[in-house]
Amino acid sequence: MKLFLTIQRDVLKRPLISQVVLETGVLINVERAHIDANEGWVLIDLPEKEETRISSRLTELGVEVKKLENAVLYDEHECVECGACLSICPQEVFSFDADYHLVIKEERCVLCGQCVCACPHQALSIRQ
């Protein structure tokens, strides 16, 4: 599962994620990160069962933790099931079932945003 971490400037300088990994022994995968002058955010992936432990520890350390759910917003009325998004997504979120209907495995999404511009029917957006 994925957690979206928002980190304030004053906390940013500390090696938080490494600290949590060392303390808990849980292997965390950093999928994306963005840091600017005032704030930073990091998208991490971790085993489902470790969520509470990691979340509470990160919160203690001053990180705002949000579960990443419904990351890809999908408008089924706009979608025509062309498949333009299939090869664009680095995480293979999109695929076709045997009947060429679109299947979305949104838990894989890393919020790169690439599919949003690739969809010719403006059927995809990313939750802010």
Binding site: E81, G83, C85, L86, F96, D99, Y100
Partner: peptide, 23 residues
Amino acid sequence: SGQVEIDGEMVRTSSMSSYSRAR
């Protein structure tokens, strides 16, 4: 099929037209 081999590498394909709608 979703992928095609180019120079020994599998490259993913995307259709611009909709097969489910064509059906």
